[in-house]
Nucleic acid binder design. Structure first.
Lengths: 218, 218
DNA sequence: GCAGTATTTCAACGAGCGTTGAATACTAGT
DNA sequence: ACTAGTATTCAACGCTCGTTGAAATACTGC
């Protein structure tokens, strides 16, 4: 249980409650009344602070996305700046893409885990998932793919985009924290073990990129 | 638009309509009335053929899962049987895991695409996704991981399970057909281009498995 | 202490929700 | 034609939904 009804402003309490519930049950799976019950505030306050349920959802998304894009872009620029004559490696670029996210999860799991779960659901939602993810993340992603293209010279663009697609799926399922790997592995692996993920994810993904994007032309 | 109200039995028409709508908007995002409107049948017929909305959802899942598990197990046994003295390669095993699914999508896209989208959503649903996926697929997945363990002798089990986790994320996002890669790539790649996926997915994933599961002990 | 604004409470609206029971139509077998 | 079972229609139940308007309160600067 998360402790609500602190001294936070009402608007933030609503956003926190909405973030958690939307993450777990989706936009349609949660009612405004349930959100406001969790935020410990009257139903109609939702419509004082936000225009509609949809607007509340949008504000939940927007609250954190800009910060995420900033720190990931800084991480990319950092690894690029570290190389003056040559290009960064695939591993370094993918690390810049994934590590800032994992670091936030380590620093403040309560704050970020629900948001990541929400992103995971949206990324895999056939309804409007593609459009939403593109709107919020594609400018950043294009920068990363550009860098990867330089690190893997002569790659077929389609190979690069499909590689990123596989990366995106692996990353967001990891953030969904569904507990399935806990069941499957009989406890050997845990969804919430960020250190274990941090050791492995970039290794797996960089190998995929390298092999798919460096194969001989077909 | 899919053509409903054919000469199919009512129960199947309901399942078809429910499958499509659940896939696109999730369990809570669709009402029984909407399903029955699409199935071109009276609302109460849903409760003649099924016990409840939840039961209808379960039957949608169960209708196809057994067949999927059968053909994928056969594909695995086929590649194992092809090797009498040695073990199948990682590529062959992953191909047995993914190719039957892709083949069905090629053979009858109308029939399978909504079901795959539903699986994609469930796999990334923090609420009950982990439990559902484990229930339906883990017996089969364990067989594949066993085979992969033989193909990658001496692997750390945690590396194997995490590798499968990344595979699962990449596979289900691909099945979600969200159209995001269409946006991102500016049309270079298309979510529905199964041939392009079939060329690339097993290459990317097998490289990930090999590299992560064969690295020196840390 | 008062004006004015920002926030919160209360009560209600029409609509759609999941679900049910009773009445009707259809399809065999005798 | 009668019956028995299966399939379908119709009307309705209590409930929750998203949203709104007006009244009440709390807060802020003068």
């Amino acid at each position: 249980m998360s402790q609500e009804s602190q001294d936070k402003p009402t608007r933030e309490r609503i956003l926190d409650a909405a973030e958690e519930l939307f993450a777990q049950r989706g936009f349609e799976g949660v009612s405004v009344r349930q959100i406001m019950r969790k935020a410990d505030a009257d139903v109609s306050l939702a419509y004082y602070h936000f225009k509609s349920k949809q607007d509340l959802f949008d504000q939940v998304m927007l609250r954190r996305v800009e910060f995420l894009n900033e720190i990931r872009l800084e991480a990319l620029e950092e690894v690029v700046g570290r190389h003056v004559d040559d290009e960064p490696t695939v591993e370094e670029i993918i690390g810049a893409f994934t590590r800032p996210l994992l670091q936030l999860l380590v620093d403040d799991h309560e704050k970020w885990s629900y948001y990541y779960q929400l992103i995971a659901q949206i990324n895999n939602s056939p309804d409007r998932g593609g459009a939403l993810m593109s709107r919020y993340f594609d400018p950043l992603v294009s920068r990363f793919i550009e860098a990867l293209n330089k690190a893997l010279p002569g790659s077929d663009p389609a190979d690069l985009y499909w590689s990123y697609h596989f990366l995106s799926g692996a990353l967001t399922l990891t953030f969904a924290e569904t507990g399935r790997i806990d069941n499957l592995s009989g406890g050997v692996c845990r969804s919430t073990n960020i250190a274990a993920i941090n050791e492995r994810m970039h290794v797996f993904l960089a190998a995929g990129f390298r092999t798919l994007c460096s194969r001989p032309d077909s």
